[in-house]
Design a protein around this nucleic acid. Structure first.
Lengths: 142, 142
DNA sequence: CATCGATGGTTGACTACCTAAAGCATACTA
DNA sequence: TAGTATGCTTTAGGTAGTCAACCATCGATG
C-alpha cells in the first residue's frame, strides 16, 4: 500500500486537541481493559466518587438514563457498586460504591494518572506551563 | 438527590487531561451527529485524507480490521467513499473518498475546528502558549 | 509449476452501548 | 382523589468492539 494516512494532524491548535483526544481515548480504553472494564464502566465507577442517582450519573456521563441502567447492572454484578433505595423518594436509586469497588476505583485512578502517556517525560517547568494553559482552556470550555 | 458527582477533577495535570478528553469526545460526537455520522465513521472519513488500505485504516483507528469492514460499508452506502481493488495486489482494497465524501469531509473538518469549544475565547497569547505546551506533550506521547 | 505459508479482507457469534419509545412505580399538586 | 410529572427499567433497532474461522491472493521454495 501507499503511505499511511494519519487523522491529518493540522498544525492548528484545534487539530492538536483532536489528536490529543484520540490519544486520551486510547489510554483510557487500555487502562480500563486492564481492570476488565469498558471505558464507560470505568467512567461510571470514577464518577461515583460520591453517591449519586441514576439521573445524576446519566447527566455526568452525558447519555440517556436508560443507558446507565445496563452499565450500572454490570458494575453491580461485579460487586463494585450497589443500588439502594432512597428513603426520601422511593423512585430514586442511590448508587453507592462498595468496598471492593472503592479499592478497584483507587487502583484505576492511580493507573490512569501515573501511566498517563507522555506526562512523565515533561520537566517541572513544562508541566507547570501545560497545567496553566489547560486550566485556562477548561475554564473557557465551561 | 445529593450533589452531582463529577468525574472528580483532580487538581493534577493528568486529571485535567482526562477531563479534557471527555470534553473532546463530546464535541466530536456532537459534531459527527450533525452530519449523521457516528464518531468512528467521522474518524475514518477524516483519516482517509489520503487513500489507504483496510489494514492501514485499521491501524490508524487502532482497532481490528474486521471492525473497519462495517464502518467502511456504511460510509460506502452513503457514497462517501469507494472500495477499489489494488491492481498491484488484488487482495488489497484501496479506500478512496468520493467527491461528495470530500465535500462532507471538508465541512466536517471545518465544524470540528471552528466550533471547538472554548478555543475561540482565548487570547492570541493564550492560544500560543497552549499550542506550544501541546506540541511538547504530543511529542513526548509519541 | 505445484504447493505451502503468510497476508488482506470478510463473515459470524457474542457483548456492550446508544437512542427513542413505551411502561411501571412513586411523588406532587389541584 | 384524580391527574400529572418524575425516576427508572424495558424493549427494539442499530453501531461498534473482540475473537475465531474462512476465502482469495501473493510470494517463496521444492
Amino acid at each position: 500500500m501507499t503511505t499511511p494516512a494519519k487523522p491529518r494532524s493540522h498544525p492548528t491548535l484545534e487539530g492538536q486537541l483532536l489528536r490529543l483526544g484520540a490519544r486520551i481515548r486510547d489510554h483510557v480504553a487500555a487502562t480500563s481493559a486492564e481492570f476488565d472494564l469498558t471505558p464507560q464502566q470505568a467512567f461510571a465507577l470514577r464518577a461515583l466518587n460520591k453517591p449519586a442517582s441514576m439521573q445524576t450519573l446519566a447527566k455526568v456521563m452525558r447519555c440517556d438514563a436508560s443507558n446507565v441502567t445496563g452499565i450500572v447492572d454490570r458494575l453491580e454484578e461485579r460487586g463494585y457498586i450497589e443500588r439502594q433505595v432512597d428513603p426520601q423518594d422511593r423512585r430514586v436509586r442511590r448508587l453507592a460504591v462498595t468496598d471492593t469497588g472503592r479499592a478497584a476505583r483507587k487502583r484505576l485512578e492511580a493507573r490512569l494518572t501515573e501511566r498517563f502517556p507522555g506526562t512523565a517525560a515533561l520537566s517541572a517547568m513544562e508541566r507547570e506551563r501545560l497545567e496553566a494553559a489547560l486550566t485556562r482552556l477548561l475554564e473557557t470550555m465551561a
